[in-house]
């Protein structure tokens, strides 16, 4: 398939910081409506890949397209138009401290011209979708637990009904039960919105639950990608070591660096 046939496509993307090469000929294609999870160890380039997609970092070379449209080196106005169809759940939720819960959720709506009262109504509905009632809407982020912050972050990500959702380590820092609740909410929200999703995580339980396909990143490249059900029979030493959390294996060399 050509890159224009995919919702999201990254081809031969290179990104380095000084002498450190982070993405080294990175390729990833995601079809419309697909849920792809990228797994990999710390510092292998998962977050950098996501920031390149969001336009927060610019790769040295390669092509990144969304709906077949190149997104590298585009103007701020074009970037805003692309961002209109993207929702993002950050690792630590990244809620704005100075704004209440509903203002956080409604922020993207109001930035796009929705009136304050309409934006508040939509925010309340989205908060209900992630299991938060009216008692929290006027609270500020510093009075929320980690799990509640993630829920609010998720509500903010889906508030504008985006076509694409990015999740950065959605279960990091949560207990296993809350992590599973967030996983269920992500699956539920994706089903509701029909969005194309890309998630990066270390959490295999989370990956198995929310992914149609799993991709493994190592040394700046995707070394394996396949349906979630195939990961246990991937035949790839790096994938096998990672999903079983073994100390011995190809990852060890990286860890000792």
């Amino acid at each position: 398939m050509a890159e224009t046939d995919f919702k999201i496509s990254m081809r031969d993307v290179h990104k380095q910081f000084g002498p450190k090469v982070v993405l080294d000929g990175f390729n990833l294609d995601i079809a419309k409506g697909e849920s792809v999870v990228v797994i990999g160890g710390s510092g292998v380039g998962k977050s950098v890949m996501l920031k390149c997609l969001l336009g927060l970092l610019t790769p040295e070379s390669g092509a990144i397209t969304i709906d077949g449209e190149n997104i590298i080196g585009i103007s701020t106005g074009q970037r805003d138009r692309i961002n209109h169809q993207i929702g993002m759940l950050f690792q630590m939720a990244a809620l704005f401290d100075s704004q209440s819960v509903w203002e956080n959720v409604a922020f993207g709506l109001m930035a796009r011209g929705t009136s304050k009262s309409d934006a508040r109504d939509i925010a309340v509905a989205k908060l209900a979708l992630v299991g938060l009632g009216s008692e929290v809407i006027d609270l500020f982020p510093d009075s929320l637990s980690g799990g509640m912050k993630k829920r609010v972050g998720l509500a903010r990500a889906i508030a504008t009904d985006p076509e694409i959702l990015f999740f950065d380590e959605p279960t990091t820092g949560l207990d296993p039960i809350m992590g599973d609740i967030i996983n269920d909410l992500i699956v539920h929200c994706v089903e509701e919105t029909g969005a194309t999703t890309l998630t990066i995580t270390h959490d295999m339980q989370s990956a198995r639950k929310i992914a149609d396909k799993i991709a493994m990143i190592y040394n700046g490249k995707i070394v394996w990608m396949g349906p979630t059900g195939d990961i246990d029979q991937s035949g790839n030493d790096i994938v096998t070591q990672f999903i079983h959390g073994r100390i011995v294996g190809p990852f060890q060399a990286t860890a000792q660096l």
């Binding site: 927060l56 961002n83 209109h84 993207i86 630590m92 990244a94 809620l95 704005f96 993207g108 930035a111």
Partner: peptide, 18 residues
Amino acid sequence: GTMRVTEQVDALTTLSTN
């Protein structure tokens, strides 16, 4: 600085706000 290190500045960009 706190907004930068807690990714709130990045969040602004993703919410179509410069």
